[in-house]
Lab assay of single mutants.
Amino acid sequence: MKATFQVPSITCNHCVDKIEKFVGEIEGVSFIDVSVEKKSVVVEFDAPATQDLIKEALLDAGQEVV
């Protein structure tokens, strides 16, 4: 499964690193693409990962998800 999250609070590479760390810890996540320019995060994943778990990880990383 693939999901795109709009994350307007992404401003720098530190944000990218933190997002990759938090989302990458979720079992089932196979790909993460964070774009500072587009302020988006694209995640490819399989169970047990879910969109809700990914959104929670983004929030835990200090990001706003819309």
Rank of each mutant, 00 (worst) to 15 (best):
V41P: 03
E20M: 15
T4M: 09
N13D: 10
F45K: 00
I19K: 00
L58G: 01
I10K: 00
F45Q: 00
V65H: 05
F5Y: 07
I10E: 04
H14R: 15
K2M: 09
V43Q: 02
D52E: 13
D33W: 15
P8D: 07
H14P: 05
V43C: 03
F45S: 01
A61N: 03
L53P: 01
K2N: 06
A49R: 04
P8A: 10
Q51C: 15
F5N: 00
V36I: 13
F45D: 00
V23I: 10
A57E: 00
E20V: 15
L53A: 13
P48H: 01
S40R: 14
L59P: 00
Q51D: 07
L59R: 12
S9W: 15
D60Y: 12
S35A: 04
N13K: 14
F22Y: 11
K39A: 06
L53M: 11
H14W: 11
K55P: 02
T4N: 06
T4P: 04
V16S: 05
E64K: 11
V29P: 01
F22M: 08
S35M: 06
S35Y: 05
E27L: 10
I54G: 02
V34N: 01
V43H: 00
H14S: 15
Q51M: 15
K21E: 06
G28F: 03
K55W: 14
E37M: 08
G28L: 02
E25Y: 08
E64F: 12
F22C: 04
D33Q: 12
K18I: 12
D46R: 14
S9G: 09
E27N: 08
A47K: 09
K21C: 05
T11M: 15
V34W: 05
I32A: 03
I32L: 06
F5D: 01
E25H: 09
V29C: 04
F31N: 09
D33C: 15
Q51L: 15
K18P: 04
E64H: 10
V42K: 07
G24M: 12
I19V: 06
D60F: 13
A61D: 02
T50K: 01
S40L: 14
C12P: 07
Q63C: 15
K38Q: 08
T50S: 06
V23Y: 03
D60L: 15
E64W: 13
I54D: 01
L58E: 03
F5A: 00
P48M: 02
A3Y: 11
T50A: 02
A61E: 02
V36S: 03
P8N: 09
V36M: 09
L53S: 08
